[in-house]
């Protein structure tokens, strides 16, 4: 390992060896033990970290109460979310009738609509057609020669 590589490791992961990548740790520690420049460089970064740790943040004594006492807005849910919440409630299995009801809706709708609209299907025509089929069937049973028609 070179000094440049060790510098990168320290800059990326800090001076504590247990934070370094395992694959490089042994070689890095070995370099520090044998190279005075590496040792000095690490010591400078250790000084810097110690100085950074001294940099304190002031207390915010009223911040917690300010956040907790603020008026929290009522969160508006989208219509689709509301519908899905009603349809698939996460709380109780007793409300299982809701998805069942929704699943039956197309069937009920079909029955109701089917009662009121014929969608172009002429029932009288069907009856007439059935009538003529019967007539032809009866005629076919008679044993008249063709010349009589």
């Amino acid at each position: 390992m070179t000094l440049k590589e060790l510098t990168k490791i320290i800059e990326y992961y800090g001076t504590q060896s247990d934070c370094w990548p395992e694959v490089d740790r042994g070689a890095a520690l070995n370099l520090i033990a044998t190279d005075s420049d590496a040792k000095q460089m690490r010591s400078q970064y250790m000084q810097l970290e110690a100085l950074l740790d001294q940099h304190q943040v002031p207390e915010f004594p009223n911040l917690e109460s300010r956040i907790l006492n603020q008026n929290l807005p009522a969160r508006r849910k989208a219509l689709l979310d509301k519908l899905l919440d009603w349809l698939l409630p996460a709380t109780s299995a007793k409300l299982l009738w809701r998805p069942v009801l929704v699943a039956c809706m197309p069937l009920l709708f079909g029955v109701v609509v089917g009662n009121f609209f014929n969608f172009g299907v002429n029932i009288e025509y069907i009856e007439t057609a059935e009538y003529w089929e019967d007539e032809l069937y009866l005629l076919s049973l008679n044993d008249y020669p063709e010349s009589q028609f």
């Binding site: 943040v57 009223n62 956040i67």
Partner: peptide
């Protein structure tokens, strides 16, 4: 605070962060 370095702004931003969480 370490980013902004200002007490008042820190309180405003922290409050707004929790409001967004809500």
């Amino acid at each position: 605070f370490r980013i902004l370095g200002n007490q008042k702004d820190t309180e405003d931003i922290t409050q707004e962060t929790f409001l967004r969480l809500w």
